[in-house]
Each structure stands twice: as C-alpha cells, then as structure tokens.
Design a protein around this nucleic acid. Structure first.
Length: 495
RNA sequence: GGCGGCGUGGCCAAGUGGUAAGGCAAAGGUCUGCAAAACCUUGAUCACCGGUUCAAAUCCGGUCGCCGCCUCCA
C-alpha cells in the first residue's frame, strides 16, 4: 500500500516517495527556548512524533532532526527582564522542553542541534548569498533580496505584489524591498554576538533552520514540518535562502503543516491570556489522554484543547485502558483447558483482527489520518470486549490464543500512535503513588486494604467493603470490581 | 484588500460520487450486594439555494456564517 501525504507546496495529496529508497530524512522546526511550551507547540511535536513513528512502522529508516533556537530577540528580552544571561534563559527552557517532550512520550530527535553551535554554517551561507547577489549588507545587517529569487512566494501561494508589507509594521528604510528579511543582525552592546565579515552580530531566525537542516540532511530532504503559521514567512524564506544558495531545487520534497489549537473556540494566544502550558496539562491528565485528544482530529484541522475536550479524551482513553486491563486479567487467569481448535466465531474474530490492522494502515496511509485510525482501534475494542463477555458465559478452549492475538493487535496499533508505550506505562504507575524512602510502599498498603476488602465482601460485610472503597476514593484512588477481581487506579482527588 | 480553510446527530470528529466510522453525553435493558466498568439497543440526509449526474454530504456556481495567515508565533 502506498502512502500519500498532503504537500503544502502543491496543495495536493501526493504519493510519498523519499529521496532515498527506504529512508526518510525529516526536519521539524524546534522551539525558541524563551518560555515553557504550550499545548499549541505540544500538538505540533505530537503530530510529527506520530508521523515519524508511523514511517518507522512502515519500514523506513527515519532520520529526524529538530533544532533549538537558542539565540533570538525573545530570549534576549526575557533575559533583560529577569536580569539573567541569555544563555542561562536558553538552557533553562531547553531543559524544560526536553522534560515536556518526555512527559508527552515524544521520541527524541536523532540530532537536536543548537543554533549557537551552527553559526559558522550560517555565516558561510550568508556569505554565499551575498556573493551571488541574493543578499546585501547595510550597516552590519545583511538582508535577503526577495526580488532576486524568482520562486519567492511559491510555498504560501502569494506573489510579491500581493503582499502588503509595512501595512502593520514599520518598514526598515534601508531595505531594497519591504519584504526583504534579515539574514544577519548587527548586535547591540551586551547582546550575544559572533564575529562575521559584516561585523559582530547574530543570525536572523530563518537562516538558522536552513543552515541546520542543510547541514544535517542535505538539499532535497524529504519532510519539513511545522505549524501552519510557519508557512509564511518562515518556511517561505527558508526556501528562498536555501535554493538560492544551493542553486538547485527543491530544498524540501514534502512540506507538512499542522493546524492550530483553540481553547474553547478561541485561538490560543498570549493577548487573550488563554495559554495552556504542556506541563500544566500533564499535571492533570495522563499523557496518553492528551495524545489521544490530539490524534482524534486530523493534524491539518484546528483542534480545541479546552477542559471539556480533555475530560472527554480522558474517558475515551480509559475505555482503551479498560479493554487492555480486561484482556490482561483474562489471560492471567489459568484456563480450565486449552486447545487450538477455534470455533467458527473465533476464526471470524481472528480474521477480523487482520482486517482491523489493514484498515488502520489504510487510514494512516491517507495523509496520516489518525482520527480514522483511532476509529478503527475503537471498533476493535468493541469486538474484543464483546468476545470477553461471551467467554464469561461459555469458555472455549482456544480462548487464550484468540484473546492473546486480539491483545497483540490492539497493543500494536496503539503503540504505533505512541499510546501505551511500555516506558510510559511504567513511569506513570511509578508516579501514581509517591513511595516512601523507607518502609512499605503506598502500593503495597493499598493492595493490603484491597485484600481485606475482598475478605469482607466474601463474608457479605458490605458496609466494611464500601467503607474501604469510599475512603480510598477520597484519597484519590478509585476501586472497581471487575469480574476479574478488584482494580485500583490513582485518579486524583474527587472534584 | 489578498491567500487559505471550515460549516456533518446534544457536543467532538472521520468520510470527498453510490444512500453517513469512531469518541463523549443521554435514555432503556443485561450483568453486579451496591457503585464503577463491560455488553446490547435507540438518533443525523450532512449551513442554505441552484446546477451537473442514473446517483452528491462528497463535483460546479451562488448565498449566509465562522476561522486562520498576510507581523514574532506550533
């Protein structure tokens, strides 16, 4: 089956054919490290994490590069506000970013270059552009001459005369064309600065990504991703610089852009004051619930990350979790008898599992339609739940085999989306209840209470059993009596 | 003003030519000491108008409404 992706450049879905057979080289614009990231940023990294995971699943060898923009006006401003060195700010938020990525269970890039460590490459590029007449220096600044690049505007679908530069911002009088953008900025005293042929200064934002992506991935790499707001001017400028410098095209084969995040119908923005940080959300919701929410909408569409949406996603996530728990419990119970002969019904169920896999892949092959893929997963969940219910009434000899197969498929599909990853499950169960440094763990005490409760229930002492359940719930621990036995889970204090 | 997107059951959201996936919520039922979970059952003709077609939510034209980008931004 072939994969098709929507390419912003052509505005169509195209068959995905990488530069090199079997390999995918991708670059996603990383954070400017001057602040904690919000869920809008989080969504972007989540989306490309899943794209990356799926490509790996498809058998591609994926090489994923994501930069850190660690020199920038915003960082400098922040540093001035807080009376700290820009580098200190950058390192702090860089570490916080990595923490948030881990929290969301996003796989780390193969390489995460810092802009400040790639300055020589940028200077080299800028010099090349000046030599070829694509750029000009004025008072220590260097600007890219947009009129010199014929393809300017091809990504965002605008032409130079359509654009009304200066309508909302003061135009720098030194620019030949108002749309010309800075490749190099002369630095003021006290700002981070590097020696260059044009004097002390620092790189413009756009050149960073070009230099880093070209350095690690080379011209014509496969996927360049980012949020829709980066299409113009950031990515447009990257193309201009890179193709002008290389004297060839394309800079990138496929441009992928994700849609925005809204909070209760409104665009999330600083001016509206409705920014939600990734770390705030992760305090209240499991990472997988956040992932599920993000993936239940196609990546190019806008999505709402309000509290209602998050609560809903958490319940949906619990449905997946419950099904896996039930399967695990079923498989853990020693069967009365086992035999490989499946009933007709079981043969059909097993066959349908392959069908679910096929449909999942079909959905993902269609421009990473995770929403559809998740629909398939839930259909599978329904099938498996129904089957387990049937087993309750009439146990069949092949049940362990059939259930196990179903579980494998379910887990496999979830894993492709980065859900229920083994590392994540372990981390969360560990964090669920704080352990004491010495003495018995909270977990073992809960288990003990549940044992007592089971005895009470057997003796029909329901008042005692309910007391234990109620009191635990008050402590944030929910106890469910499943047919497989009791299950507890840390869900946080009752609202 | 330019460019682009969207409008599908109570809410969210797939589907882009053959009579509408999935999630959440709601109601009834099964199961259960109870609660929770699970299972079953129940609902939309797809903003509006016109056109193309044997056939349209899905194509074309128009109308209305909402949104994003054009400035740093995921």
């Amino acid at each position: 089956m072939s994969l098709v992706v929507y390419n912003t450049m052509s505005r169509h879905k195209e068959e995905f054919r990488p530069r090199e057979e079997g390999k995918v080289f991708m670059y996603v614009c990383g954070p400017t490290v001057y602040n904690y990231i919000h869920v809008g940023n989080g969504r972007a990294y989540l989306v490309f994490d899943v794209i990356r995971r799926y490509l790996s699943y498809k058998g591609y060898e994926v090489f994923y590069v994501q930069n850190f923009t660690d020199v920038d006006d915003k960082i400098i401003n922040r540093a001035n506000e807080e009376g700290k060195a820009p580098e200190e700010i950058a390192r702090h938020y860089e570490a916080a970013f990595l923490e948030d990525m881990r929290g969301l269970n996003i796989l780390p890039p193969d390489i995460a270059p810092r802009a400040t460590e790639t300055i020589p490459r940028m200077i080299e590029m800028i010099r090349g552009l000046v030599d070829k007449g694509y750029a000009y220096a004025v008072d220590g600044d260097v600007f890219f001459r947009v009129e010199s690049f014929a393809g300017y505007g091809k990504l965002s679908g605008r032409s130079l005369d359509e654009m009304r530069a200066g309508e909302r911002v003061e135009v720098d009088e030194r620019k030949a064309n108002p749309m010309d953008f800075a490749l190099w900025k002369a630095s003021k005293p006290g700002e981070p600065a590097w020696e260059s042929p044009w004097g002390k200064g620092r790189p413009g934002w756009h050149i960073e990504c070009s230099a880093m992506s070209l350095h690690y991935l080379g011209m014509g790499f496969d996927i360049h991703g980012g949020g829709q707001d980066l299409v113009f001017p950031h990515h447009e400028n990257e193309i201009a610089q890179s193709e002008a410098f290389a004297g060839s095209e394309p800079f990138v084969r496929y441009w992928l852009h994700n849609g925005f995040v809204n909070i209760q119908e409104e665009k999330m923005s600083k001016s509206l004051g409705n920014i939600i940080l990734v770390r705030e959300i992760l305090k209240r919701y499991p990472a997988d619930a956040v992932r599920l929410l993000a993936l239940q909408t196609h990546y190019r569409n806008p999505i709402d990350f309000g509290p209602e949406a998050l609560d809903e996603a958490r319940r949906a996530y619990e449905r997946l979790e419950n099904c896996l728990f039930a399967l695990d419990a079923f498989l853990a119970k020693p069967p009365d008898m086992t035999a490989p002969q499946r009933t007709q019904r079981e043969v059909e169920l097993s066959d349908s599992c392959f069908d679910f896999e096929r449909r999942f892949e079909e959905a993902m092959d269609d421009d990473f339609n995770t929403a559809r893929a998740i629909g398939v997963i839930f259909e599978l969940v329904k099938e498996l739940n129904t089957y387990l219910d049937e087993q309750e009434l009439y146990q069949t000899p092949a049940a362990p085999m059939v259930a196990s197969h179903g579980r494998d498929v379910l887990l496999k599909l979830c894993n492709i989306l980065g859900l229920f990853s083994p590392a994540q499950r372990e981390r969360e169960s560990r964090e669920a209840v704080v352990r004491e440094e010495t003495g018995p763990s909270a977990e073992s005490l809960i288990e003990l209470l549940l044992e007592v409760r089971a005895v009470a229930r057997e003796g029909k002492q329901f008042a005692t059993a309910d007391l234990i359940r109620t009191r635990l719930r008050e402590l944030g621990i929910r106890v469910d009596d499943l047919r497989e036995g009791q299950r507890w889970k840390y869900v946080g204090p009752p609202a």
